[in-house]
Nucleic acid binder design. Structure first.
Length: 861
RNA sequence: GCCCCCUUGGCGGAAUUGGUAGACGCACACGACUUAAAAUCGUGAGCCCAAAAGGCGUGCCGGUUCGAGUCCGGCAGGGGGCACCA
């Protein structure tokens, strides 16, 4: 029998789906909708296995929902702005726009080879003016609504990419793309006011019950809500106040110093007349922000000589230091130090010989016997040495202290967030221009909406470092829209996360020209019912999009709090790594395995060391090209392997053996259909019984496959399909082929037809091309893509007899078959009669017998 | 340092949520077909024991329970997130 010809078949069905426009989404308010979305790709030039995994998972869901009668929106687009295009332009002398559009064309073809149910008529590319003009208008609306502003601030500067990075884009003190240690620079930047929604974004996490806990926790930590008090310390001999934030107002009587950040305005002022302090501040700024540096950095301070007055005691003065561990960006940039109950404060106090007074002591401890050594006490206890707070617990002390501060007018209870506003200015060319004009007379002037889009000039050069837009001879020179005088365009562009923060809404009506999307379209399609992507965006894209949805709602674009109703984060695709004797990484395509399991390089026979299994990366050369895989095994085999191997949220290891096994199953399924067509269901005593059993298997498989897909247990769904096909194969193997002319058993023939139809429909979303081919082979005129999902008959999910386990003292000794729902007495009697149980009881009498109906009998002796 | 997750055969992983541990697959071994190989089909397999009987088994120690992979406490190992956050 000929092998299944995937090359011909996959091309054929892809063509038919395209010709029939099978996957076009049309709004129809009479139908329930399902918006299935996978994170759109950056057009780097080639798709990778991570894309195949992502889009295969989404496609499985989209196909199942379609079969279940949902009106499905499953679009695709391109996150097309970004630095790689500029790097390519610099290296290959090709314009970013040309490079990007070529990559999009290449990758679109690669994606189509996977056989996805994408509505390509909705494709968008974020680098096109008809996309980004809408976000320019949106930005102006954000500005008008107080959600965008410009401010000079310390920023993270990536010295390799020559641009500013958002806090979310700095990982361990290094740029998220370049890995270069970020520098601190003070620049004027545009910010989006994400902090305005800090509390809403935090609170609404509770409503996102179809999101992974991991992502919700990460966002919660990132937002970093803390409650405490802000208090005022008057400075002695100076008509000035110092504002301090603390989460522990209860420990105020344990204070022994104040410390301000090196970036605090007061520090700068004092440094003007104090060279020693100026030098200390300069040293602080030099200290890097990387983990290693911070870990090693000593707590250091510089005594300013100033004294601050304790808010609860006008006669109590505390020294004021500038300290290297106080951050200007958090709280007020100033702290009070309570060494007994904070480790950093303790380290600092020991170094500068400051008092350490415990004011919280563990329950049952005498305050006068309690001392703090090298470790600060941060646990619960009773307040002591704290005047009016004495005896209260920590929480009570906080409340009482805040009450006192408020009545004295020296402070108030407050909430502080770790979340910073989102800096969106980037000093790059290949991004969306920020639609602002700097006028020497009028200041910051928004580009009038009628003049949008502000488009990128095409005649730019990349031979000088820095931003090509500011180098351009003419582009930035414009007349001020307000006064008509000479003015300059903003030459910064938006962070590319700006584009990806609203593309899911654009997909709802991608062709409207005068607005980003229509109200009707978004109110029908949004929120996205199922979003799928990598966990690396947990606090980047996923947080920005949530903010954007709220911001767009505030500006009247939408009426929606959350963009993504269901979120799923997929695991990565990994592969073994290979190294040649000279230490060079070797790609999987260049190696071969010998008889004895030895691995050598194909080109020169050099022995290869097999290394750890790691995320596929160009650096380690452990990548596998999806197009090569699809060329060798077909898209269906690749899809099946991805779905079957590992639970989707975990990292999967890509192996040749794995995809080879999937390919063999594709063939086996195809042969099964061919065999089915040649056999005849013969009659006999067992025919009806076999028919019944087969139908039970199929309906159980339907039930489990459906629930497994809904629960993202794709590997289980595949296993269920295999169980069903194995069962069908077993039955077919017992039947004669047609030319033996035996009379047919109608019951078995009917059951086989039903069960084979179920099998093909269950397998279709996993292996769609094979699915269509099998469906056609069964004689159907309609496409499988237009057929409905099988529904399990509940009466076939339970059988009439059950096998119960029988234990003696909790250890399995026998199993007994009983009619379903036998009563306890029957089960007990049957169990005690079983010879194995009699033997295991060794003549003893049962002290107790536990019967769980249809499950287990446990005899206790 | 803080927070979160994970640990089941040679491997990926199942287990109706406290009730027959190892579904389904990969790799392996043996057999059939073949001149031979590939492909295909069949059989086997957690570990110990020659086998049966039996015993032991879900990272380790303890607990709850008639019964624990599942619940509780402690420990070890691995992974992830945040991090001088007051």
């Amino acid at each position: 029998m000929a092998r299944y010809n995937f090359r011909e078949t996959e091309a054929k069905w892809q063509k038919i789906w395209a010709e029939r426009d099978s996957f076009r989404a049309v709004e129809d308010t009479s139908k329930r909708k399902a918006y299935v979305l996978e994170m759109f790709p950056y057009p780097s030039g080639r798709i990778h296995m991570g894309h195949v995994k992502n889009y295969t998972m989404g496609d499985l869901i989209a196909r199942v929902r379609r079969a279940q009668g949902y009106n499905v929106l499953h679009p695709m687009g391109w996150d097309a702005f970004g630095l790689p295009a500029e790097n390519a332009a610099f290296q290959n002398k090709v314009h970013p726009a040309v490079w990007t559009r070529q990559n999009i064309d290449d990758m679109r073809e690669q994606l189509k080879a996977i056989g996805l149910t994408i509505d390509w008529s909705r494709e968008v590319a974020t680098c096109e003016p008809d996309y980004y003009k809408h976000e320019q208008a949106m930005f102006l609306d954000f500005l008008a609504n107080g959600l965008a502003y410009r401010r000079e601030s310390w920023v993270n500067w990536d010295p390799v990419d020559n641009t500013v990075l958002a806090n979310e884009q700095v990982i361990d003190g290094c740029g998220w793309r370049t890995g270069a240690p970020v520098e601190r620079r003070k620049l004027s930047q545009w910010f989006l006011k994400i902090t305005e929604y800090a509390d809403e974004l935090l609170e609404a996490l509770k409503t996102l019950d179809r999101w992974p806990d991991k992502v919700r926790t990460m966002q919660e930590n990132w937002i970093g809500k803390s409650t405490g008090a802000q208090l005022t310390f008057p400075l002695a001999n100076r008509n000035d106040l110092l504002e301090v934030y603390t989460t522990r107002p209860d420990t105020l009587f344990g204070a022994s110093f104040l410390a301000i950040s090196a970036d605090h305005p007061l520090a700068a002022e004092l440094a003007a007349n104090n060279p020693g302090l100026a030098e200390f501040i300069a040293e602080c700024r030099q200290t890097g922000t990387s983990e290693a540096v911070i870990e090693a950095a000593e707590k250091r301070g510089f005594d300013t000589g100033l004294k601050a007055v304790h808010p609860f005691d006008p006669n109590w003065q505390l020294p004021v230091y500038v300290a290297n561990f106080v951050l200007m960006e958090y709280g007020t940039g100033a702290i009070f130090g309570c060494p007994a109950h904070d480790q950093r404060d303790l380290d600092f106090a020991r170094k500068y010989r400051l008092p350490v007074t415990p004011v919280v002591v563990p329950a049952g401890t005498d305050p006068n016997d309690f001392a703090v050594g090298d470790e600060a006490y941060t646990g619960p206890g009773a307040l002591a040495h704290s005047r009016f707070l004495d005896g209260l617990d920590v929480e009570g002390g906080k409340k009482r202290a805040i009450q006192e501060l408020e009545s004295l007018g020296r402070g108030f209870g407050t909430t502080v967030y770790r979340l910073r506003d989102w800096g969106v200015s980037r000093q790059r060319y290949w991004g969306c221009p920020i639609p602002i004009i700097h006028c020497p007379a009028c200041g910051l002037v928004p580009v009038p909406k009628a003049d949008l889009p502000v488009t990128l000039p095409m005649d730019v050069t990349f031979d000088t470092p820095g931003n090509p837009l500011s180098h351009h001879p003419t582009w930035k020179h414009v007349a001020c829209p307000t006064c008509g005088g000479k003015a300059e365009r903003e030459t910064d562009t938006f962070d590319t996360f700006f584009e990806s923060s609203w593309y899911f809404a654009r997909f709802c009506s991608p062709h409207v020209a005068d607005k980003p999307f229509t109200r009707e379209a978004v109110s029908y399609w949004l929120p996205v019912d199922q979003y799928i992507g990598g966990v690396e965006h947990a606090v980047l894209h996923l947080l920005y999009s949530r903010f954007f949805t709220r911001a767009m709602s505030k500006c009247g674009y939408l009426d929606l709090p959350e963009p993504f109703d269901g979120m799923f984060t997929q695991g990565m695709v990994t592969h073994e790594t290979y190294r040649a004797p000279d230490g060079e990484w070797v790609s999987p395509a260049e190696i071969q395995r010998g008889e004895g399991g030895g691995v050598t390089r194909v080109s020169d026979g050099a022995p290869i060391t097999v290394g750890r299994i790691e995320k596929m990366s160009k650096a380690k050369k452990n990548t596998v090209d999806p197009s090569a895989i699809i060329g060798t095994y077909g898209a269906d085999a690749a899809r099946l392997f991805i779905l079957s191997d590992t639970p989707p949220e975990r990292d999967m290891e890509w192996t040749e053996a794995g995809v080879d096994g999937a390919w063999r199953y594709v063939n086996r399924l195809w042969r099964l259909i061919e065999d089915y067509k040649t056999v005849v269901a013969k009659d006999g005593a067992s025919g009806a019984e076999k028919a019944e059993e087969l139908r039970r298997t199929a309906h159980r498989a339907t039930d489990k496959t459906t629930s497994s897909i809904d629960a993202f247990a794709h590997n289980i769904a595949v296993a269920e399909v295999r169980i069903l096909s194995n069962a069908i194969g077993d039955v077919i193997a017992t039947l004669p082929i047609e030319n033996e002319t035996r009379p047919a058993d109608p019951a078995l023939a009917e059951a086989l037809a039903e069960v084979v139809s179920i099998l093909v429909r269950l397998a279709g979303p996993m292996m769609p091309h094979l699915g269509e081919e099998m469906w056609q082979a069964l004689g159907h005129d309609r496409l499988l893509a237009e057929e409905s999902w099988p529904v399990a008959d509940p009466t076939l999910l339970v059988s009439n007899s059950v096998t119960m386990a029988v234990q003696v003292n909790g250890k399995l000794k026998a199993t007994i078959d009983l009619p379903r729902d036998s009563d306890q007495a029957t089960a007990e009697a049957a169990a005690l009669k079983d010879p194995k149980i009699v033997a295991a009881m060794a003549g003893k009498t049962a002290r107790k017998v536990i019967v769980v109906p249809n499950r287990i009998v446990n005899v206790v002796v």
